[in-house]
C-alpha cells in the first residue's frame, strides 16, 4: 500500500456484512406511526371544540336574526325578551351596558390592587414574603366563582353596602357584583402583570440603579414602562374574564332578564350577558323558540367580545416576549 495515492477503501460490505440500517415494517415502526396519528387526533379535538362552539352559537344566532333586526338587537334600549306580545323587545344595549358597568367597577378594584401586588412581588418582595403572598393570590384564584357571588349576596350587600349607602341598595346591585368580580379577576391581573415585569431583563434595572435611581424610580419609571405591553395584556385579560363572569353577577348583580331601560345607578340591579344566558337557559327552553335563539345570540356576542380581547392580549404578550426573550 505504501506510496499508493488512492484513498482508502471504505468497508464495502454492502447490506450483507454491515449492520442492517434499513427501515422495516416491524410492529414497532407501525406503532410509532399509529401513535403519531393518535396524538394528532387528540390535538385536533380542541380545534373541533372551537368549531362546534362557533357552529352552535352561529346556528341559533342566524335563526334569531331571521326574527329580530340587527339594529334593534345591537342598539335598542329595551330588553324584555321574556315578556309576551307587544311588551317583547330585543334591544340588547341595557344588558351590554350592565356588563360593561360591572366590568368597569371590577377593573376599578382589580387594576390598582392587582398592579400594586404585581409591582410588590416583582420588584420589592423579599423571598420570605413572596412565599406568603403568592399562595394567597393562588388561593384567591382557586376559590369557585359561586363563592364570591354568595359572599356578595349575603355579606357585601346587607352588611357593608346597606349600612354605608342606605336601604335603597337593592338586593342585587351592580356595585356589590362589581366589587366581587374585581376581587375575582385580581389574581389574573396580578400574575400576568408580574410575569411581564419579571421578564424585563435585570440589566435594565442595573443600568438605572447604577445611575443612582431609587427602587421606586426603577420600578415605576424603568420596569413598568418596559413591561407596559404585558401589563396592558394583564388588564385586557382581566377585563375579558370579568365580562364573561357569570355566577357573581347572577347572584348579586341581577339576572339581565328584564331591563326596560339602561341602568345607571350602581345600587340598582342590572345583569350581564353571561348572567342572562345562565338565568334563561336552564335547560327547558324548547329548541327553535325565540327564547332559545335569544340565548345563543347573546352568547355569540359575548364570545366575539372575549375572543377579540383575548387575541389582543396574546398580541401584547407576544410583543414583550419578542423583545426580552
Amino acid at each position: 500500500m505504501a506510496g499508493t495515492p488512492n484513498t482508502p477503501q471504505p468497508a464495502m460490505g454492502g447490506g450483507g456484512s454491515g449492520p442492517n440500517l434499513l427501515r422495516t415494517r416491524s410492529p414497532r415502526a407501525i406503532g410509532e406511526g399509529a401513535i403519531r396519528v393518535s396524538l394528532f387526533v387528540a390535538a385536533a379535538i380542541s380545534v373541533i371544540t372551537t368549531t362546534l362552539i362557533v357552529l352552535s352559537l352561529l346556528r341559533e344566532t342566524v335563526a334569531f336574526f331571521g326574527d329580530v333586526g340587527a339594529t334593534e338587537f345591537l342598539f335598542g334600549t329595551k330588553w324584555t325578551p321574556q315578556l309576551a306580545g307587544d311588551q317583547q323587545s330585543f334591544g340588547m344595549l341595557p344588558v351590554l351596558v350592565g356588563t360593561l358597568y360591572i366590568t368597569g367597577i371590577a377593573m376599578l378594584v382589580a387594576v390598582p390592587l392587582g398592579l400594586l401586588a404585581a409591582i410588590y412581588l416583582a420588584e420589592y418582595a423579599p423571598e420570605r414574603v413572596r412565599k406568603i403572598v403568592k399562595p394567597i393570590l393562588e388561593v384567591l384564584a382557586g376559590v369557585p366563582t359561586i363563592v364570591f357571588g354568595f359572599f356578595a349576596l349575603t355579606f357585601i350587600t346587607p352588611e357593608l353596602l346597606r349600612p354605608l349607602l342606605g336601604p335603597e341598595v337593592q338586593q342585587s346591585n351592580q356595585l356589590a357584583a362589581g366589587l366581587l368580580v374585581g376581587l375575582l379577576v385580581l389574581p389574573t391581573v396580578a400574575s400576568v402583570a408580574e410575569d411581564a415585569m419579571t421578564a424585563v431583563p435585570y440589566s435594565l434595572r442595573e443600568g438605572a440603579f447604577g445611575m443612582g435611581a431609587s427602587r421606586l424610580i426603577v420600578s415605576l419609571r424603568v420596569v413598568f414602562p418596559a413591561a407596559l405591553s404585558g401589563i396592558i395584556a394583564a388588564l385586557v385579560l382581566g377585563a375579558s374574564r370579568a365580562i364573561g363572569e357569570t355566577l357573581v353577577i347572577l347572584l348579586a348583580g341581577g339576572s339581565g332578564q328584564l331591563l326596560p331601560q339602561v341602568v345607571t345607578s350602581p345600587t340598582d340591579a342590572s345583569g350581564s350577558m353571561a348572567a342572562f344566558i345562565a338565568s334563561t337557559a336552564t335547560g327547558d327552553a324548547p329548541t327553535g323558540s325565540i327564547e332559545f335563539e335569544t340565548i345563543f345570540a347573546v352568547g355569540f356576542t359575548l364570545f366575539v367580545i372575549c375572543l377579540v380581547l383575548n387575541l389582543l392580549s396574546i398580541r401584547l404578550v407576544g410583543k414583550y416576549r419578542q423583545v426580552y426573550e
Binding site: 471504505p10 468497508a11 447490506g15 454491515g18 449492520p19 440500517l21 427501515r23 422495516t24
Partner: peptide, 15 residues
C-alpha cells in the same frame, strides 16, 4: 457506512 449511504431514503435513523 459499511457500504450503505446513511442518508439513503430507506435508511432508518433509529437503526
Amino acid at each position: 457506512y459499511h457500504g450503505q449511504d446513511l442518508y439513503a431514503k430507506d435508511v432508518d435513523p433509529v437503526q
